[in-house]
Simulated assay, not measured.
Amino acid sequence: METMDSGVQPKLIRDLQVRADYGQIYIYSAASFDDDPQVSLDALEDARGSRRFVGTAGAGGFIDLLTPGQWNWKTPVRIEVFPAEPKGDTDEWEHEVDVDLDVPDGRLWFEPAGGSGNAVETKVPAGEYRVRVSGRGFAALGRAGAEGSDSYRLRLWARTTDAPAALRKFWSGWENYR
C-alpha cells in the first residue's frame, strides 16, 4: 500500500512537447519494451476495454495514452519525479489514472501512434514507478487537431510493489468514445 505525503516536492520537473496521432501517445522505456507491435495493440485494448483511456502492456514497460483529438503535433507534457506519492490535485484535471511503469535505463520515450513522427526522449532516474497520468483542456472527441488545448502531466514516484491500474477521475467526454 502506497502512502501519500503531502509535503513531498518533485526532485525533477521536465516540460516536453510531443506528438499525438491517431488519438494516441505511446509512453515507454525501450529497455523494458521489446518493440513487439502486439504490445501497442494490447495496451490500446486495455485503454478502451477498461474505459480508463490509459492502457498498459508489455510487463510494465508501455503505456498507451488516448487523447480526445485525432492529432496534435505540439502536445504539452510535464514530467514530475517525486521521492514518494505526491499530494493529490485531482480537481485541477479532467481525467486521471494511476499505472505502473518500469524505466530500468532511465530513458523515457514519447511517440505518436502510427509511426507519424520521431519519438521524444527524456531522462528520469532509473527505477520502477507508479505513474499518475493527468489530462485537461479536452475538446470534443476527434475535434482537437493541431490547435488542441489538451495537456498532460505524468507524476512518477518509486513503487515497491506492482499495483493494478486505477482510474482516479473520469472525463465525461469519453462516454462518446466508440
Rank of each mutant, 00 (worst) to 15 (best):
S6Y: 12
S6M: 12
G7C: 12
V8D: 05
Q9W: 10
K11I: 15
K11Q: 14
R14N: 13
R14A: 12
R14F: 06
D15G: 06
D15N: 14
L16M: 05
V18Q: 01
V18G: 02
R19H: 11
R19V: 09
D21N: 15
Y22P: 05
I25F: 02
I27A: 01
A31P: 01
S32Q: 07
F33R: 11
D34K: 14
D35L: 11
P37Q: 07
P37I: 04
V39F: 05
L41F: 09
A43R: 02
A43S: 13
A43Q: 03
A47K: 09
R48E: 13
G49M: 02
S50D: 04
S50R: 07
R52Q: 09
R52T: 04
R52F: 08
R52V: 04
V54F: 02
V54Y: 00
G55T: 05
T56R: 10
A57S: 10
A57V: 00
D64N: 15
D64Q: 11
D64E: 10
L66E: 08
L66M: 15
L66P: 04
T67L: 04
W71R: 15
N72V: 02
N72S: 07
N72D: 11
W73Q: 13
R78G: 01
E80R: 09
E80D: 07
F82M: 01
P83S: 14
P83E: 15
A84N: 07
P86G: 08
D91W: 14
D91P: 03
W93R: 00
W93H: 03
E94D: 03
H95Y: 06
H95K: 01
V99A: 06
D100K: 05
D102S: 10
D102T: 07
P104S: 01
D105H: 10
R107D: 03
R107L: 05
W109E: 04
E111L: 09
P112A: 00
A113R: 06
G114A: 00
G114R: 00
G115R: 07
A119M: 04
A119F: 00
V120I: 14
E121Q: 14
E121F: 03
T122W: 00
K123Q: 15
P125Q: 05
P125W: 09
G127N: 04
G127C: 06
G127K: 12
G127W: 12
Y129T: 02
V131A: 11
V131L: 06
V133F: 06
V133M: 08
G135F: 04
R136N: 03
A140F: 13
L141I: 15
G142A: 09
G142F: 14
R143S: 13
R143I: 13
G145Q: 08
A146T: 09
G148K: 05
D150H: 12
D150F: 09
Y152A: 06
Y152L: 06
Y152K: 07
R153F: 02
L154C: 08
L154E: 10
R155Q: 15
L156I: 06
A158R: 14
A158V: 11
R159A: 14
T160P: 05
T161E: 13
T161N: 12
D162I: 12
A163R: 15
P164I: 11
A166R: 15
R168C: 07
R168S: 06
R168W: 09
K169A: 12
K169V: 08
F170D: 07
S172V: 15
G173N: 00
W174T: 03
W174C: 09
E175C: 10
N176W: 14
Y177H: 11
Y177D: 11
